[in-house]
Each structure stands twice: as structure tokens, then as C-alpha cells.
Simulated scan of single mutants.
Amino acid sequence: MLTQHFQLLAKYNTLANRKLYEACTQLSDDERKQTRPAFFKSIHGTLNHIMVGDRTWLGRFEGKAMPSTNLEAILYDDFDELWQVRQAEDERIENFAAGLTEEFLSSSIQYTNNSGRVCNDPVDLLVAHFFNHQTHHRGQIHDMFSQTTIAPPSLDMHRIIRP
């Protein structure tokens, strides 16, 4: 059942974020914010971008008009505050996944993308994208860790989910 799969991805998301943020605590604020060859310029910038994406998609899933604007916004300059908010957002994501229904997943959502184009896409595709987006950007952060003296954490799903 697709709902169970998305619930598994929500749990993985929470655990992977926890591992990633715990690794980030080993870096100084300057290291987290250091400009690197990455789309969102730094570990901190990419962590904020993931939050922007999560809020945008969850808002759309709740029926709100959420344009894809200001994708590079630094919502939280303070890492400790960002980590606190991340934990709350991950709980929100798990609650969202717990409430998914096949009826909702078989519907579609109209939204405006970051190019200003109005799209109408199936919800099951968008929820899959929602989780893939997080994984994609955690991978970028993982790569940025390799540019520091701190070893990147293992984020393999089967290792994190395993009891």
C-alpha cells in the first residue's frame, strides 16, 4: 500500500535528518556557513532550503496556495533554532504521512512552480517528489561534509530504518 510506503519514508526522513543534524553539531558555525561549490552555497543554506521545500509542499498538500519563491531563503540563521524547528517539522511530516489516504493520493494538486508555470500534478507523484527532494539535498550536504574534517554520516535507508 502506497500510504504505508510514504509513512516509512517519513520515518526515514526523521531519522536521517537526526543523523545529519547531529553530524552538523560537530562543525563550527563558520564551517556550516562556509561557501562551497553547491547550489545553495553552504551546508546551512541547504538545510534551510530543505525547510523551505518542506513547508511549501506541506502547505500545498493542505490546500494552500504556496508559490515556489525565495528558494534560497535563510529562514533560520541560528543553527540551534533551525535544529529545533527541523524536529518539529519532521513530526509534522510524520503526522501528514500517518493521515494519508488512497483517495488523497489519487487526487491532483494545482500549483505554481518556481518558473511561474501553473502545474496540475497527481498527488502520489508530488508526495514521492517531496521525500525525494529531501534525500537529494541531504546527499548534497553529505558531499559538503567530505570537504570538511568531519566524516559524513551514513544515510543509507536500510541502515537507518533497521531496528
Rank of each mutant, 00 (worst) to 15 (best):
Q147P: 14
D143F: 05
R159M: 14
H49G: 04
H136K: 09
F40A: 08
S28D: 08
S115W: 04
F6I: 02
S146R: 15
N17C: 07
S108F: 04
A151V: 05
V127C: 09
R92L: 12
L8I: 11
T25Q: 14
S115T: 13
P163N: 14
D121P: 04
E62V: 00
A23Y: 04
R36F: 02
T46Y: 08
A38V: 12
R55P: 05
L105Y: 08
L71T: 12
C119Q: 13
T14R: 15
A23R: 12
L126I: 06
L8V: 09
S42E: 03
P152D: 11
S28F: 05
L15Q: 13
S42I: 11
E91S: 02
K33A: 13
V52P: 11
D121T: 05
M144A: 12
G45P: 09
Q84C: 04
A65W: 00
L125V: 11
L47M: 12
R32W: 01
N132P: 13
K11E: 13
K33I: 01
H129F: 04
R18Y: 01
L8A: 12
S107F: 00
A88N: 10
H136M: 14
L125F: 13
S107D: 11
P122A: 14
C119A: 10
H158C: 07
A97P: 02
Y12M: 06
T3F: 07
S146I: 02
K64I: 07
S28K: 02
Q34D: 05
R138T: 04
R18K: 15
T101I: 03
A88I: 01
H142G: 05
Y111R: 05
D124I: 03
E31T: 06
Q140S: 03
I50L: 15
L100G: 10
D124P: 00
H137Q: 09
E31V: 05
L27A: 07
E31G: 07
N120M: 02
Q147C: 10
H133G: 11
L126D: 11
A98F: 03
T46M: 10
H49K: 09
R162C: 04
E89W: 00
R60W: 01
S28L: 04
E62H: 09
M51Y: 07
F39C: 09
L100H: 12
V127K: 13
S107T: 11
A128V: 06
L126R: 02
H137C: 05
L155S: 09
Q34L: 06
M1P: 13
C24F: 07
S28W: 08
V123A: 11
E31S: 08
D77E: 15
D29T: 14
T46W: 10
V52N: 08
F96G: 02
F61A: 10
G63T: 06
H5P: 00
Y21N: 12
K33L: 01
